[in-house]
Amino acid sequence: MLRLVVLISGGGSNLRALLDAAEHPDFPARVVAIGADLPADGLAHGEEYGIPTFVVPFGAFESREAWGEELLDQVRQWDADVVILSGFMRLLPPAFVEALSPNLLNTHPAYLPEFPGAHGVRDALAAGVSETGASVIVVDAGVDTGPIVAQERVPVLPDDTEARLHDRIKLVERELLVQVVLGIANHRIDLKDLT
């Protein structure tokens, strides 16, 4: 059984998709803990599903490195096979990434390497492209520059707003994440081969 720790900063919609998938007895992965960098709404999923949660508030530390050390200590307590950043909106210090990669994944609302960074959906609309996408990547030292594990295109419709497009991307992102976790658990995806 693949053990997952999921880190969030918001509502945790991708986390919810994983939790729903794991409800099926034959799904070969379980979320063993949920962490956040602030009191995120998505932590309520942990309460609903009986999964432990933890918060390591960024502002409580003197440096990004000190915060990263504490976050890593919290994550390591759960003996996770894979750590997933799911809407986690904080840059991780290099030592955290080095300690967990390649078993550290991130979801991104664009077809990388197109539109990296915090505003991928807005940037796609501003560029006037006809399609964007969703990606699951291995986290590396850059911003959305790690090896791509899976991705799928999403069309941009003429009347799309940022919110409408993002909602459609999230649907694809959730399914991609579940399929990637399934692939890792079933040994169809070897993260070490990607790095």
Rank of each mutant, 00 (worst) to 15 (best):
A22P: 01
A22K: 01
A22Y: 01
E23H: 11
E23R: 07
E23A: 13
H24V: 09
H24L: 01
D26S: 10
D26W: 05
D26N: 13
D26E: 14
F27S: 14
F27W: 10
P28W: 01
P28M: 01
P28F: 02
A29E: 08
R30C: 03
V32T: 14
V32N: 15
A33V: 03
A33K: 06
I34D: 15
I34L: 01
I34H: 15
G35Y: 11
A36G: 08
D37K: 04
D37P: 04
D37M: 05
D37W: 04
L38A: 14
P39W: 14
D41G: 12
D41F: 09
D41W: 09
G42I: 02
G42Y: 12
L43K: 02
L43V: 06
A44T: 15
A44C: 01
H45E: 06
H45A: 03
H45R: 10
G46K: 03
E47F: 03
E47N: 11
E48H: 11
G50R: 08
G50W: 10
G50S: 15
G50V: 03
P52N: 12
T53L: 06
T53V: 04
T53M: 12
T53R: 13
F54K: 07
V55D: 08
V55F: 02
P57K: 09
P57W: 02
F58N: 11
F58W: 05
F58D: 11
G59Q: 05
G59W: 02
F61A: 07
F61P: 12
F61K: 05
F61E: 15
E62I: 00
E62M: 09
S63V: 05
S63H: 09
R64M: 02
R64I: 00
R64H: 03
E65Y: 00
E65I: 05
E65V: 12
E65A: 07
E65K: 10
A66I: 03
A66T: 07
A66H: 11
W67F: 07
W67G: 07
G68R: 06
G68M: 01
E69H: 04
E70I: 06
E70C: 07
E70R: 14
L72N: 01
D73Y: 06
D73C: 10
Q74L: 00
Q74N: 12
V75A: 00
V75D: 09
V75K: 00
R76H: 11
R76D: 13
R76I: 07
Q77L: 13
W78A: 00
D79Q: 14
D79F: 07
D79I: 10
A80M: 08
A80G: 06
D81T: 00
D81E: 15
V82W: 00
V82I: 14
V83W: 04
V83A: 06
I84D: 10
I84T: 05
L85P: 09
L85S: 13
S86R: 06
G87P: 02
G87V: 07
F88E: 13
F88W: 09
F88V: 02
M89P: 11
M89A: 06
R90D: 12
L91N: 07
L91G: 04
L92F: 03
L92C: 08
L92E: 13
P93A: 02
P93N: 08
P94N: 09
P94Y: 14
A95Q: 08
A95P: 04
A95E: 10
A95C: 03
F96I: 02
F96A: 02
F96E: 11
F96D: 05
F96S: 02
V97S: 04
V97F: 05
E98H: 09
E98G: 04
A99R: 06
A99E: 13
A99P: 07
L100M: 13
L100A: 09
